[in-house]
Design a protein around this nucleic acid. Structure first.
Length: 489
RNA sequence: CGGGGUGUAGCGUAGUCCGGUUAGCGCGCCACGUUCGGGACGUGGAGGUCGGCAGUUCGAAUCUGCCCACCCCGACCA
């Protein structure tokens, strides 16, 4: 049975199939929205837990702000409105009634809201309106708050996990007394994201700053992490914005500093979303299905019993014993002792779901005091003595985690090219999609021209860039360093 | 919003051009039995407003009109 279209045939189709068949998500009845299924949600919960701890460890607290934002709040920061206006869902009425013509139910025209409410596409405005009431003195600062929430952006085109109309995310919103402190926070959080994505999701990222065109609406600077997917397209995995005093000015948030003078507060905001689930899928999966890194996996080990009728009890007992041993070591394990599926079916199922390690145990193993252990990342199978099993599993989970990272890193390196000739760039971005490091004159005009002609955008100006003087590949004007181009999701 | 495509059982589909018995098949599902070291098999069974509405006709999944939904490619975007 053909479960997935091959990656090479139609990557989009392959990705959709994979998401749906691996029990991550379904398309929902609402345009552009998705149902996150239990298996997918379990992975999201793992992400939440890891990130939440990292936020707390860096001094942040969680809070919650409203879903609805009065329209007037939105208009206060000019570039922010401009950036989001085109994709907002708007609540205009608060009541339904029976259709007087007897055709079901209609919106009651009498129940029109005095002021429309925007369903948050991001919460800067309502949060800064709130912070205004919280901040009078430098002693009230910093405010370091994170919110776990859903947001709505009415994009034209949607894709499961990568760009859904409604999505889940966290958004941090901080307020500081000084520019330096806010800048430090912005950098700190982009580093937290990079740390998380690399060490937990096993996806290598490039940290950098966005060009003016790609910057968040309302920010002075946007820092980001960019990853490369297996089809050669880039995916922005997280952003951290230095908002300067833009929102403080828009919402009139002033404080008395140590010197007794009034000043506007400095702000940052930062977020990652369920898009990371898309990244996880696209960075690692193969034609057999998902590959979930051990630190993210809802279950790290699955035990599949193999038996003929009379051996059932013996094999199930052995399986339970192994399960118990693994649980005691804090390893997340599932023992699939359903008797209505064959072992082969289960093998395929858990490969599709991306479970990092599989134990198969049957009569032969019981006789030899062994199990068969199979790695999802390499599909390698080995026979292991039960006495060594726990140690071996702990070792392998570690190894799989780092092997996945190394493999993704190697892929990225093999798909990162230096390019100096624009004509060649136009050709190569088509034939060999990936990251292209090129000189750029720093102007929005050139960037826009490149985007229009090639669909490639500047993903970021990497932080860890060595000084390398050159000339812009389009205009020939001087450039201090190479920037990162790619086609992106 | 433009261009292309598709809607038939939970999923995948045949049939539509050229209207004609009870809409067929595979997977899945239910029952029983045999199986079980890489997606098992047999027997029996359940499951359909053929996307919707209207029209043409003795008769519509099939023809006509309108509408709706979804997918792919653009524009937009995390």
């Amino acid at each position: 049975m053909k479960l997935l279209t091959k990656k090479s045939e139609n990557y989009s189709q392959w990705y959709n199939d994979l998401v749906i068949k691996a029990e991550m998500a379904d398309n929902s009845a609402v345009r552009g929205c998705m149902v996150i299924k239990p298996y997918g949600y379990a992975i999201w919960e793992k992400m939440q837990a890891a990130l939440d701890k990292m936020f707390k460890d860096t001094g942040h607290e969680n809070a919650y702000f409203p879903l609805f934002i009065p329209k007037s709040f939105f208009s206060k920061e000019a570039s922010h409105v401009e950036g989001f206006a085109k994709e907002c869902a708007v609540v205009t009425h608060y009541r339904l009634k029976n259709d007087p013509n007897g055709k079901g139910i209609i919106v009651d025209p009498e129940a029109k809201l005095e002021e429309e409410l925007i369903v948050r596409p991001t919460s800067e405005t309502i949060i800064w309106n709130t912070y205004k009431g919280w901040i009078q003195s430098y002693r009230d600062l910093p405010i370091l708050i994170n919110q776990w929430a859903n947001v709505v952006r009415w994009e034209m085109r949607t894709r499961l996990f990568l760009r859904t109309t409604e999505f889940l995310w966290q958004e941090g919103h901080t307020a500081h007394a000084t520019r330096e402190e806010a800048l430090e926070e912005t950098m700190k959080m982009v580093n937290v994201y990079a740390d998380f994505v690399e060490n937990w999701l096993a996806i290598p990222v490039i940290k950098g700053v966005k060009s003016a065109c790609e910057r968040f609406a309302g920010a002075i600077d946007t820092y980001c992490i960019e990853a490369l997917m297996q089809d050669g397209k880039a995916l922005q995995c997280g952003t951290s914005h230095f908002l300067g005093q833009n929102f403080a000015k828009a919402f009139d948030v002033k404080f008395t500093n140590k010197e007794g003078a009034l000043d506007y507060v400095w702000a940052t905001s930062w977020g990652v979303s369920t898009r990371l689930m898309g990244a996880l899928i696209m960075a690692h999966a193969d034609d057999n299905g998902l590959i979930i890194p051990p630190k993210m996996a809802p279950y790290q080990v699955v035990i599949v019993p193999i038996y003929k009728g009379s051996q059932l009890q013996e094999v199930v007992d052995a399986g339970n014993k192994i399960k118990q041993m693994l649980l005691e070591k804090g390893i997340r394990v599932k023992f699939d002792d359903r008797d209505n599926n064959t072992p082969g079916f289960k093998f395929a199922t858990y490969e599709l779901k991306g479970v990092p390690l599989r134990i198969a145990i049957g009569p032969r193993d019981i006789q030899n005091n062994t199990v068969e252990l199979a790695r999802r990342d390499t599909l390698e199978k080995m026979t292991v003595s039960q006495d060594m099993l726990i140690e071996k599993i702990i070792e392998l989970l570690d190894e799989i985690q780092s092997n996945m990272y190394q493999k993704a890193l190697k892929f990225r390196e093999e798909h990162t090219y230096d390019i100096d000739n624009y004509e060649e760039f136009k050709k190569l971005i088509e034939e060999k999609p990936g990251f292209y490091r090129a000189h750029w004159d720093g102007t929005a005009e050139t960037e826009t021209k490149i985007k229009d002609e090639t669909k490639a955008t500047i993903r970021c100006i990497p932080f860890e860039n060595k000084e390398e003087p050159g000339i812009c590949m389009v205009t020939g004007k001087p450039s201090k360093q190479r920037v990162l181009f790619a086609r992106a999701y």
